[in-house]
Amino acid sequence: MIRKFFKTILVLLLISIAYTIVCRWIMPPITITQLGSLFAGNGLRRDYVSWDEISSNAKLAAIAGEDQLFPEHGGFDWSAIEKSLDTRHKNRIRGAAASTISQQTAKNVFLWQGEGIMKYVRKAPEFFYTKMIEWFWGKKRILCVYLNTIEMGKGVYGIEAASQKYFHHSAKYLTRKEAAMIIACLPNPKVFTVLPESRFVRWKSNWILRQMNNIQSDTDIRKIIN
Rank of each mutant, 00 (worst) to 15 (best):
T8W: 13
Y120L: 07
K4N: 10
F110P: 00
L85T: 11
A58M: 09
K83I: 14
I208G: 03
Y48R: 00
E134S: 00
Y48F: 11
G95R: 15
I9L: 14
I183W: 11
L174Y: 09
S56V: 15
H73R: 01
K7V: 05
K177Y: 15
R122T: 10
A171P: 09
K107T: 12
L186K: 12
A179D: 09
G138T: 04
I182M: 12
E53Y: 10
S170W: 07
I81C: 11
T175L: 05
G114M: 09
T219D: 09
I150M: 13
E66K: 01
S55I: 03
I101Q: 04
T175G: 06
E53I: 00
K165Q: 10
L85D: 13
R24G: 09
G36S: 12
Q164S: 10
T175M: 04
Y166D: 03
A18H: 05
S16D: 06
N213W: 07
E115C: 15
A184Q: 10
P189E: 11
R199Q: 15
Y146E: 06
M212C: 02
K190N: 14
G153C: 08
N148E: 07
G116F: 14
Q216K: 06
P71K: 02
E126W: 10
A124F: 11
N57V: 08
I54V: 12
I224Y: 05
S37W: 04
G43L: 04
I9Y: 07
E82C: 05
W25E: 00
A124S: 05
S170D: 07
V191H: 14
E66R: 00
Q164N: 12
E197W: 12
N148M: 07
L38T: 12
F192I: 13
K172E: 03
E197P: 11
F70E: 00
E178Y: 13
D218N: 07
V191I: 14
L14T: 12
A80Y: 02
Q34H: 03
N214D: 10
G95N: 14
F70P: 01
E178C: 08
W78H: 07
M27K: 01
L143A: 01
H73I: 03
V194S: 13
T105G: 07
Y48N: 06
S79K: 04
Q104D: 11
V22I: 11
L147W: 08
